[in-house]
Simulated scan of single mutants.
Amino acid sequence: MERRGFLKVSVAGAAAAAFGGASWLNAFSATAADGDGPYGPLLPPDANGLALPQGFTSRIVARSLEKVTNSSYLWHMAPDGGACYADGDGWIYVSNSEVPLIGGAAAVKFAADGSITDAYRILDGTNVNCAGGKTPWNTWLSCEEVDRGEVFETDPFGVNDAVARPAMGRFKHEACAVDPDRQVVYMTEDVGDGGFYRFTPSAWPDLSAGTLEIMVGPEDQTSGAVTWAVVPDPSADDDDTRDQVEGSKPFDGGEGCYYAGGVCWFTTKGDNRVWAYDAAASTISLTYDADEPLSGVDNVTGTSSGDLFVAEDGGNLEICVITPDAVVAPFVRVDGHDGSEITGPAFSPDGTRLYFSSQRGSGGGTTDPGMTFEVTGPFRA
């Protein structure tokens, strides 16, 4: 397929219902319009090094190897995928650690006024925990990005022990997105010919047993109908899961994954694309296929307004917004963090605060400490 600068949102009915009537139909065939986006242009970097639109402010909530405010927890190195959870009048932000051998995940607890009240580990002793996914029953699926890595179901509230979910497959996991409408979990695989997977639990929502499938379709297919086939051996004892099904569709470096309103959006960093899987129609399409302004697509999340927020691993270290009216524009840029990547974007339960990390901070090296930010402001409802 010839590379071209266009953005196309290709799902209408189901997504519109989930996003409060957002104009997905108008966006169906629109081309990208580079511009300031719905929040206006970025201002010069603030004291924390974030270039933000007018009306937005930032703070640093955690720095690697330093105690998180009002806690005894030293924030982990290489903060990666994250999610937010309601906790009484406050909320919790969960963050993975993409560190070899000790990996795991941790949580920061916030009071109703946004003050930090605690931080603690929720997963230990795992390996290169990259992204993951939030479940509707308020657990965090933390994924190991290593060959034959596993998914670990963890408790953001720090009460229950984490549990491995080997039935979900052993491969180089990146991200998960739960589809409660069909009672399945979608998963990406971060290799150059990675699969896009679907796990159906035997007894929803128990993830201890079930059926793992991989998407089937032509290698060069960018739109149209796709099918699914059962992966015979999810444990990958002899062959990698992506190699067990003839005709499985390869994706070039699967990254972030986000579900809403009948659609699962996922990113592939190798070809800088944002994909949409229409679960009801079992079709795929391209939501974004361009080289700028969004470059190095990675983690993705969304809002009730229908906006997608896509973080960059590379590029100029931005989180870009893709709107239902087919505009893609920078929302925030992290200044002076060359060599890092933006990870873990997630909104507070009320939608007024965005959390994310610069994984390697301003140093940019693999052993340099990262930092986790909060951005507050008038996000679109």
Rank of each mutant, 00 (worst) to 15 (best):
D80Q: 09
S71Q: 15
Y85S: 12
W91H: 15
Y73F: 08
W91E: 07
V99T: 15
D89A: 14
V61Y: 04
V68D: 06
G81S: 05
L65C: 08
W75R: 14
V94I: 15
S72G: 15
A78M: 05
N96D: 03
P45Y: 05
P44M: 00
P45R: 07
L50V: 09
G82W: 03
C84S: 13
H76K: 11
V68S: 04
L43F: 03
E98M: 01
A51M: 10
A47R: 11
D46H: 13
P53S: 10
N48F: 02
F56T: 11
I60V: 15
Y93M: 05
S97F: 02
W75A: 15
A78W: 06
T57G: 07
T69A: 12
D80S: 04
S64V: 03
S72H: 14
G55W: 08
D89G: 12
A78N: 14
P45M: 01
V94P: 10
S64K: 12
G90E: 03
G90L: 03
S97A: 07
G90Y: 05
L43E: 13
P44E: 01
D80H: 13
N96W: 01
G90R: 14
I92L: 12
N70E: 05
W91Y: 15
N96L: 00
R59N: 06
D80P: 00
N96I: 00
E98G: 07
W75E: 13
L50W: 07
V94Q: 12
L50A: 07
G82K: 04
Y93S: 02
S58N: 01
A62H: 05
G90V: 14
W91S: 15
T57K: 11
I102P: 00
K67A: 08
L65T: 08
G81D: 09
D87K: 14
W91A: 12
S58T: 14
G49S: 04
N48R: 08
N70T: 10
S97I: 06
